[in-house]
Design a protein around this nucleic acid. Structure first.
Length: 793
DNA sequence: CTCTACTTGATTTTT
DNA sequence: TCAAGTAGAG
């Protein structure tokens, strides 16, 4: 929700039966035939919009007008009188998507869209429902929504109370375990026997129960609860479920491939009665399996909802031919998919380019130069994006862009409300608003430093637990005793007095005035003003922004609600900048030109994804590659580096297998310009003469070998340019290695002892073509090209 | 209680 | 490499 909870709702909300035969409805239906909103749709889109009754699955490939279908469908339901705005449940994953949907519906049907009170994220709608029936799930209607940091703090308390060593069994791990259960819709009583014992010698289940109990005591819910408790509510109170089934005459879900089991169950319960459920998604863009999303939900749809209408949107309106061909060819390698074939009527356009760099620094340099060139040809910087697999790749690119003076902006990272200063400020306000909010109190009791450290907190906890009262109350008691030393005792008393005073103020002043005063008097603003680190100024700015934004809300309560679910940085920055973000953050966006660095085995596909999830992991990585490519409208530029520093060590790398998954006809290999400025040999000097890419197939082993060779040349000259003491002449190495890797199979065998020029001696563990997995004595396990090592002995 | 020196370990992230 | 989080001194 992007508006405060106080929006007026019709009183008859849950009981009034919509009169589908009413005069007004019939009148609106009569207008429908002219419906201008349908005119621009292609036949498939139109089918998806007009199939209003029964279950509908819209498989919407990238750039096929998914949002358009969704919003037009809503407009259609309303305009034809089939539903009133508040009869429609429309769920998204992000607030941004919800906001955009609301705006676009409004642009189609006008301010009537304002009446769509059930348009929002799963979590905001879950919250709304829970607040109405909070008592039935053991909460009060003003329950607090916990962020991840509060969650972790609470988790630590639970571990401590159970006497579990937090070093051996980290709270983080418990948190992800419990999150996993919640994602699967499992309450403490429902976790499978084997899994309950997965943590702290069989205490997993017990800890989950204890955690849930603590949440209830604190009158709090974490994000998972916002859905899970709805499920419990509906299962235990079928009459309430029925109210909502009646209420939501039509249901729409965006990004259905991202739903987890809990969300699926949530939707299924609601849709059971009327079955007017329309899910829009793209199995090829499912990239959140690691946080509980079940691609299966979309693959299973027809089975779960028999008789479902399935509409495929395959006409792409975004990308040119070659880009689309590359993306489609790539994703076709995946097994577990429903299968779509994207097509475009656009021109073929430019081929997807693949550029090899010597190392990551060189890669950043090449990208920087390319951007400068585009910029000088008046390509807008705001239409350029650099999409990386992991955020660690960003630094080097940022450095380079900053160096050459290309303005950029990093998208993603911490949300506004996740920043420490915002969470701190909110914690103060939470305690003012609700003195029993232990988690908030604990967060700020010693921020800024007041001399109230672990020891004091421990005393407070003991008292609070013994007397079964909140920390603030325990504190009030303790300052009257002499249990604490004079210094902390005085500090604690002062703090309590302040909180009393602020609470009084909040009765008469507006919440932003109160916030201003609280931040001043607590010394919090002072703390950052004294801080001389680079980001202190920004933090103060954020605090100001927080206070300012509070003015829009009727009261503190509704502000806190808004902020825990919705708040984000306001992006008013309109300057021309290149966007830098992770591939995950890029989903749903599009740019004229997209740079895709780091296409190397291990990095992308990410080794860890492969290790942890095997083929499923690989396919998700491939979908990520597909998402990356389909962000581009006119140009997609892939890069790989032959050497990359990982965890501080230089690794030699091989190009990603995804490069080989691309269709040759839509791809162009670009020879990176020689890097004279670094005094190197120029990775391609010899290479150029050999012209290995002029041949027919770059997908053959021959191309692989060429890459191997290339990697060699690059590292050889690269290292000698760095003067790192490579005694052998690069040219000589080249000769050796070419000879070595020309053979069909690797010259090495598993168990062989080898020597690598960078990593030293090691043992070959596995062989995959010319790629060796070697366990190095010092450097650990690495994947290297066979051409990089010498046989020992 | 706080500050500094050290160990440790390291994707992707919305709500 | 480098950031975050912990252990021990002041």
């Amino acid at each position: 929700m992007n508006q405060p909870e106080s929006r007026p709702e019709p009183q008859d909300d849950l009981t009034h039966e919509p009169a589908s035969g009413s005069l007004s409805a019939r009148a609106r239906a009569a207008v429908a035939p002219q419906s201008p909103y349908l005119s621009g749709l292609n036949p498939e889109q139109r089918a998806a919009v007009e199939a209003t009754e029964g279950p509908v699955l819209v498989l919407a490939g990238a750039g096929t007008g998914k949002t358009r279908v969704l919003t037009t469908r809503i407009a259609h339901l309303i305009a034809t009188g089939k539903a009133r705005p508040f009869d429609i449940l429309a769920v998204t994953f992000t607030n941004k998507a919800a906001r955009e949907m609301r705006e676009r519906v409004a642009s189609l049907i006008g301010p009537v869209a304002e009446g769509m009170q059930w348009l929002g994220t799963f979590h905001s709608i879950g919250t709304k429902i829970l607040r109405r029936h909070a008592e039935l799930v053991g909460l009060r209607s003003d329950f607090t929504i916990l962020g991840t940091d509060d969650q972790l703090r609470l988790m630590k308390q639970v571990l401590e109370a159970e006497g579990i060593d937090e070093k051996r069994w980290p709270a983080r791990q418990l948190a992800s375990l419990i999150d996993g259960w919640k994602n699967r819709g499992l309450g403490p009583a429902q976790i499978p026997g084997g899994e309950a014992g997965a943590f702290a010698n069989g205490k997993g289940g017990k800890l989950y129960t204890a955690y849930q109990d603590r949440l209830k005591v604190l009158n709090a819910a974490d994000f998972g609860d916002l859905l899970l408790e709805c499920l419990r509510l509906w299962r235990e109170h079928p009459d309430i479920l029925q109210q909502y089934q009646d209420r939501f005459r039509y249901m729409l879900v965006d990004e259905y491939q991202d739903t987890n089991v809990a969300q699926y169950l949530w939707l299924r319960l609601l849709a059971q009665a009327r079955k007017n459920l329309c899910c829009v998604g793209d199995d090829d863009q499912s990239i959140y399996g690691w946080r509980g999303a079940e691609v299966d939900n979309i693959l299973r749809f027809e089975h779960d909802f028999p008789g479902a209408t399935v509409v495929r949107l395959e006409r792409n309106y975004r990308s040119t031919g070659h880009i689309l061909a590359a993306a489609s060819f790539l994703i076709a390698k995946n097994q577990g998919r429903l299968g779509k074939t994207l097509r475009t009527e656009d021109e073929p356009g430019e081929k997807v380019t693949i550029t090899g760099a010597w190392d990551s620094e060189d890669e950043a340099r090449l990208i920087g130069e390319e951007i400068e060139a585009l910029h000088s040809k008046r390509h807008p910087l705001s239409e350029i994006a650099i999409l990386v697999r992991i955020s660690a790749q960003m630094r080097e690119i940022e450095d380079r862009l900053a160096n050459v003076g290309v303005p950029y902006r990093v998208i993603g990272g911490l949300r506004f409300y996740e920043r420490a200063e915002i969470r701190d400020a909110l914690a103060y306000l939470r305690v003012v608003n609700q003195p029993a909010d232990d988690l908030a109190f604990e967060r700020i009791v010693n921020v800024p430093k007041r001399g109230l450290g672990d020891a004091t907190i421990q005393v407070l906890h003991n008292h609070a637990r013994a007397a079964r009262v909140p920390l603030t109350e325990a504190a009030r008691f303790i300052v009257e005793t002499d249990e604490l030393k004079p210094k902390p005792r005085g500090a604690l008393r002062d703090l309590l007095i302040s909180f009393g005073r602020w609470a009084k103020l909040s009765e008469t002043m507006t919440q932003s005035e109160v916030a201003q005063i609280v931040l001043e008097e607590s010394g919090y603003t002072d703390m950052w003003q004294k801080d001389k680190s680079a980001d202190a100024a920004g933090r103060l700015e954020n605090l100001k922004e927080l206070v300012r934004s509070m003015e829009e809300f009727p009261d503190l309560q509704s502000f806190l609600e808004h902020v825990s679910l919705v708040m984000e940085a306001n992006e008013t920055d309109t300057t021309e900048r290149v966007s830098l973000m992770t591939l995950h953050a890029a989903k749903g966006l599009e740019f004229n030109t997209v740079f895709l660095p780091g296409w190397e085995e291990g990095l992308f596909p990410n080794q860890r994804a492969l290790d942890e999830s095997g083929r499923a992991g690989l396919e998700e990585e491939r979908r990520l590659a597909h998402v990356g490519l389909t962000r581009a409208r006119r140009m997609a530029k892939i890069y790989f580096a032959s050497n990359r520093r990982i965890h501080g060590l230089w690794n030699s790398t091989v190009p990603s297998r995804f490069v080989d998954d691309l269709p040759e006809a839509s791809v162009e290999i670009v020879e990176a310009p020689a890097n004279f400025s670094q005094g190197g040999f120029g990775g391609g000097s010899r290479f150029d003469r050999m012209a290995p890419f002029s041949g027919s197939s770059y997908q053959t082993p021959g191309w692989q070998r060429a890459q191997a060779h290339r990697a060699n040349t690059a590292s050889g000259s690269g290292y000698s340019a760095r003067g790192s003491g490579d005694r052998r002449s690069p040219m000589l190495i080249e000769g050796e290695l070419v000879a070595k890797s020309t053979g069909a199979a690797s010259a090495f065998s598993v168990g062989a002892r080898v020597l690598h020029s960078k990593f030293g001696p090691g043992t070959v563990e596995a062989i995959d073509g010319n790629k060796l997995t070697v366990e190095f004595d010092k450097a650990g396990r690495k994947m290297v090209l066979d051409s990089f090592v010498e046989q020992l002995g």
